[in-house]
Design a protein around this nucleic acid. Structure first.
Lengths: 220, 220
DNA sequence: CTGTGTGAAATACTTCACAGCA
DNA sequence: TGCTGTGAAGTATTTCACACAG
C-alpha cells in the first residue's frame, strides 16, 4: 500500500522498543550493501535472512514508523535507506569532538569513512602537553582546558571519549558542563550523568566475555 | 541464606535470558572497581544504583545461577566475582588469534590489559606481505595462509577479526574451516556462518547512529 | 502468486511485594 | 533492622496467521 508520502514517518515515538532501533542500524548497513549489488528492492524475507531475523520482525520494525513497503514488491532500497536515516537522525550532519587522542582514536579515524560522513570530526582534545599541536583527523589537537570555549563556538554536542578510565568521570563532568549531550565512551567505566546526557559504552573486554559465554554455551 | 557451596552454580542454562548475560559483564566490571575501594560486600541496591538498574533486577539476575548472597549483608565481592567469571567462562584462559593486524588491532592491544588476562593473544596473522615478520602483541605476524596449521597446533578457537569488509566473509570461511568457533568481528558486515560458530560484531558507525538517535529523542 | 501491514496469541523480561534469614 | 530469594503480576517484545494489495 505504501502510504502517501505525508503519511510516512509518523514517529509514534514514545512506544518504539529500544531493540527496534538497534536493528534499524543493521538493516541500514545491509540494505546499502544490497543496493551496491545493483538491486532496487528488498523484501522483508530477504532482509531478515541476511541478518537472521524473521520476516515478521522486519515488517513490524518498520511499521513503527509508517508504511514503507509495496505489497508484492517489497521495499525500494533508496526510499527505505532514506527513511531509516531520517529516523536515526543521520540524514543531517553531526559535529563530533575527539577527547583523548591516543592510539585507539587514531586507529578509529581510518575506519569505515566515519559513517558515510554523517559524523564530522570538528575538533580534537587531549590533556597531554606532548600531544597538543599534533594533527589528528585533519584537526590540530587542542588542550582539554580549552574544550568549553571551542565547543560553544562550534556548537559541539557529541563527543568520542577515549581517556584513561581513572580520569573519565572527571573529564566527562567538564564536558557536560560545556553542553555535551551525547558521549560514545571507550573508557571501561560506567559514567554517572544527568538523564539529559546520552551515553553508549564500548568495552572490548565486555564483548570478549560475551563471546566466551556464547562459545561455551554452544558446546552442549 | 547463601546456599551450601554444592548448591551453587546450578546453571539452569536453557532458560537464562540473553539480557542477563550482558548485565553480568557490567556487574563484574563494577564490583571490581568497588573492591578496589576496599569494600568487601555489596548489596543489590548498591550495585543496581551504580548501573541504573533496580535492586530486584540485580537479585533476579544472580538467582538464575544459584544463591550467592547473605541476607542482611549483601554479596561478598570476592565470591561474587568468582561466580560471575565462572558463569561467563572467563575463569579459564582463552587463546585468541589476531587476524588482520592494522592500526585498530594495534591500538586495542594496549587497552585495559586485555580483560585481566583471561584472553591471551597467542598468534597474529595478516595477508599483507609488508606486515609479515613484524611484531604485534609480542607475537610475530604470520601469513594468513598458515592460519590452519598454526591454529590447530595451538588449539586456537577464538579470533579477533579486523580485516577489510570486502574480504571478511572469505577470510572467515577459512577460519571456520580451521576450527574457529568464536569471532569478534570488527568488519562492518554481517558474516554468514554455521550455527556452531558464535560472532559478536563491533561497528563504530552503528554505535554512533544509536547515539544520534538517543540524543535526538532526549530533546523532547 | 508474492509480499505488506497488523491484530491477536505467545514469549520473554522486569518489577512488585513479601516471607524468611542474620 | 537490612537484605536476599522468589512466586505472582505486570510489561514489553516477538511470532503467528491472515486480510488485502499489486
Amino acid at each position: 500500500m505504501a502510504g502517501s508520502p505525508e503519511k510516512r514517518r509518523q514517529r509514534a515515538s514514545g512506544s518504539v522498543p529500544k531493540a527496534v532501533i538497534s536493528r534499524l542500524s543493521l538493516y541500514l548497513r545491509e540494505i546499502q550493501l544490497w543496493e551496491r549489488d545493483g538491486k532496487e528492492t528488498i523484501s522483508s524475507t530477504q532482509l531478515g535472512k541476511l541478518l537472521g531475523f524473521t520476516d515478521a520482525q522486519v515488517r513490524k520494525d518498520f511499521a513503527y514508523f509508517g508504511q514503507f513497503g509495496y505489497p508484492g514488491i517489497g521495499y525500494r532500497c533508496t526510499e527505505l535507506t532514506a527513511a531509516i536515516r531520517g529516523i536515526l537522525g543521520t540524514d543531517r550532519p553531526w559535529l563530533v569532538a575527539l577527547v583523548g587522542c591516543g592510539n585507539l582514536v587514531q586507529a578509529l579515524m581510518g575506519y569505515r569513512g566515519f559513517a558515510d560522513r554523517s559524523f564530522q570530526i570538528v575538533a580534537a582534545f587531549d590533556s597531554d602537553p606532548a600531544k597538543i599541536g599534533q594533527t589528528l583527523a585533519g584537526r590540530r589537537i587542542e588542550p582539554l582546558a580549552s574544550f568549553r570555549e571551542v565547543a560553544s563556538k562550534l556548537d559541539i554536542r557529541m563527543v568520542l571519549l577515549a581517556v584513561p578510565a581513572t580520569v573519565a568521570q572527571e573529564v566527562v563532568d567538564g564536558l557536560v558542563a560545556s553542553g555535551v549531550t551525547g558521549i560514545l565512551n571507550f573508557a571501561p567505566v560506567t559514567l554517572s550523568l544527568p538523564r539529559t546526557v546520552q551515553v553508549i559504552g564500548v568495552d572490548l573486554a565486555i564483548e570478549l566475555e560475551q563471546l566466551a559465554y556464547a562459545v561455551e554455551q554452544s558446546r552442549s
